[in-house]
Simulated scan of single mutants.
Amino acid sequence: MSVSDMSFERWTSRESSTWTFQVFQKYNRELSRMYISHIAANEFIYRNLGKNAQWEDPVSKHFKFRDETHEHTFGSIKGWSDSFNDFDNWTNLNSVMAMSSNLETYLSTVIKLALESDVGVLFGAKRRIDGIEIIKHGRSQPFDFEDKIVSCTKGEWGSRVNAFKKIFGQAPEVLESNISRLEKLRKLRNNVGHAFGRDIELSRSHNVIDAMDMHKLKREKTLEYQKLIYGIARAIDKQLLNDHIGEYQTLYFYHNLRPSLKHDDSNHQRKVGNHMAILKKKLGQFGAAKAGKKFCRELIVYYEAL
């Protein structure tokens, strides 16, 4: 179906993902570019060192330091390599922490979006109460959803999944079948974020004097976690978009645009036509999927009738 023929349907989105997921993906791609650049630099350095360097060579033979005192940090190329491999591991750990944080931010946002759109789901009345109607007539959001959001984004993953199912009736299979992996990821994230990559409980012991070994995370495992996080976010987005969100984001976009539109035209059809043209243009400038005149007109008529 061409864009011009597409009709507005409240609970069916013309887009394949929420705007929230699109933002999630932009952050994912940003992190991926940084991570891939690190991999390329790592391989380039070792490939070139391998041509003429020996493990016992002094570091200053192959590297230049702006601060001359740094030359004595490593006893040899082998010492530098050991530290550089530690940095590679630290990069893996922090990449996973960033991915996990991005997932939790996405979940908080998309769950709020779904509840704001389909508030009736909290009462077992799916798609019976349109959240945009509540917002239109005076409230910034239907209810305070903070406790629901927290139950799905904080604590152990088993309880998070149960909370998600309690609210929305079901959870994607990829989420339910990977609880143990997600729990390992959660603990790893906390250890990186709060204990410099070490076990949190052990790092809080006051009767030690030696630093503990950092968690080891191979590159292959880092990429596995990235794939898992993407798969879970994509599955949740598909479920919530299809079941509870639909075209809510576009309706909300029009709701925010509406105060800037002129409403004093006595010719109703002409006024709707003008509003339709502006909405179509603004959606394009915003970066959303293209919307035709028919879609925009029907959306406006729907909103104004609420």
Rank of each mutant, 00 (worst) to 15 (best):
H215V: 08
H62C: 10
E201W: 12
M97G: 05
K136L: 06
E220D: 13
K166G: 04
T250H: 02
A114Q: 01
H255N: 09
Q239V: 08
W80T: 03
N102P: 03
E68M: 08
S177A: 15
F168M: 06
F164M: 05
E220F: 02
R29T: 12
D88W: 03
S117E: 02
T250E: 04
K64T: 12
A40E: 11
K154C: 02
P142Q: 02
N190K: 09
D5I: 05
M1D: 10
L122H: 02
H215E: 11
T12C: 09
E156D: 14
G124D: 07
N102C: 03
Q226T: 15
E183Q: 15
R29D: 13
L107G: 00
G231F: 02
C296H: 01
I232H: 01
S37A: 08
T222I: 03
W80D: 02
W55T: 08
L49Y: 05
K216H: 14
F74V: 07
S76A: 06
F145Q: 06
I229C: 02
E71Y: 09
S140P: 00
K112R: 07
K136A: 06
F84M: 07
K51T: 09
G246C: 11
D88V: 03
S140E: 06
A277C: 11
V3A: 09
D5Q: 13
R33H: 07
L185C: 04
S117A: 13
L306C: 13
S205Y: 13
G246R: 06
Y46G: 10
D118H: 02
W55G: 03
W11E: 07
E15W: 01
D147C: 11
I45G: 03
I245W: 00
L115T: 01
E156F: 08
N256G: 08
F87K: 09
G231P: 01
G169C: 05
K238N: 10
S180E: 15
Q226V: 12
F196Y: 12
S83T: 08
I39P: 01
E71M: 10
A289F: 01
M99F: 09
L122S: 04
S16H: 12
V3L: 10
Y35C: 00
E71A: 14
L107N: 00
A233F: 00
P142T: 02
F253K: 03
M1G: 15
S83A: 14
I179V: 15
R297D: 04
V192L: 04
K238E: 14
E15M: 12
L279Y: 00
R139I: 06
E43M: 11
